[in-house]
């Protein structure tokens, strides 16, 4: 918590002074409120579903399983597995050199698709996007650190009260990547280290239940080997790709501080 104090103090100085709202020059009124939804020391298991946003040619659907431990209110560590394809399943391999190519004979890749723009570029305009622009993450496993310095609350139409944590996250892991060739076959482009960063918020429905909306960018190197054509040598096309995932999740929280019972006969 202390680590956030300095930047926040600078922000405070930039912000218009709250003193403008005080009632009397000789007193200040403060609210020191016990959080209704404390996460300190809690474990969190989340199941997410979502899709990529913003990519021109690729459109992925994915699910993510997360396991978080909240070291304190502001810091959590997270392990996650995100998948758009059944892990380790590829279908029938087609013989040949270079990157492994598979026949698209089973629906393993349930979350890996291409956009309408891709079809339009291919069929209407008869153009070809770079193969590296078509590479997708099929499975990702990694860890992340979550920093949530912001706690918020709100009322909807001045009725009902909601609470949320707003967080930033950064991490890394490994991912398998692939793309679909024009002939419909899938090419395994390899396993790479992937960096991720993003943010989101956690809306508390109960002390044990939260909804999360998470926007996370995964950065990876898409490396596509183009086999030799005729007498010439093959080429390697490499691009740094970003996949931005918008995920919605349901999370269960357990452990941590027992709820504050202000009064109980027990």
């Amino acid at each position: 918590m202390k680590t956030t104090r300095i930047p926040v103090a600078i922000l405070c100085a930039l912000w218009l002074p709250a003193a403008a709202y005080a009632q009397s020059v000789n007193e200040r009124v403060h609210v020191l409120q016990k959080r209704d939804y404390s996460v300190k020391g809690k474990f969190e298991i989340g199941l997410f579903g979502g899709l990529t946003v913003g990519d021109v040619f690729t459109q992925q659907f994915a699910h993510t399983l997360t396991f978080d431990y909240h070291v304190n209110e502001a810091l959590a560590i997270e392990a996650l597995w995100m998948s758009s394809k059944l892990p380790f399943a590829n279908g029938t391999r087609i013989a040949g050199s270079g990157q492994a190519e598979y026949k698209d004979d089973k629906n393993f890749r349930w979350g890996e698709t291409y956009t309408g723009a891709y079809d339009q570029v291919k069929s209407d305009a008869q153009l070809s996007p770079s193969n590296a622009d078509l590479v997708m993450l099929s499975n990702y496993i990694g860890v992340a650190v979550q920093f949530s310095p912001i706690y918020g609350k709100w009322s909807l139409f001045n009725w009902g009260l909601g609470h949320a944590d707003i967080y930033l996250t950064a991490g890394g892991g490994v991912a398998t990547t692939d793309y679909r060739k024009a002939n419909g076959n899938w090419v395994d482009t390899g396993t790479y280290f992937v960096g991720s960063f993003g943010g989101g918020f956690r809306i508390f429905l109960a002390r044990w239940l939260a909804l999360r909306l998470d926007l996370r960018d995964y950065t990876f190197a898409a490396r596509v080997e183009v086999p030799a054509q005729g007498g010439g040598g093959g080429t390697v096309e490499t691009k740094i790709r970003n996949s931005l995932y918008l995920m919605f999740g349901v999370c269960l929280l357990f452990g941590g501080e027992a709820p504050v019972e202000i009064w109980s006969p027990y």
Binding site: A74, W154, S155, N158
Partner: peptide
């Protein structure tokens, strides 16, 4: 929706 955000108990 009307609400408020608290940044590290400071702002």
């Amino acid at each position: 929706l009307y609400g408020k955000l608290e940044l590290s108990s400071e702002l």
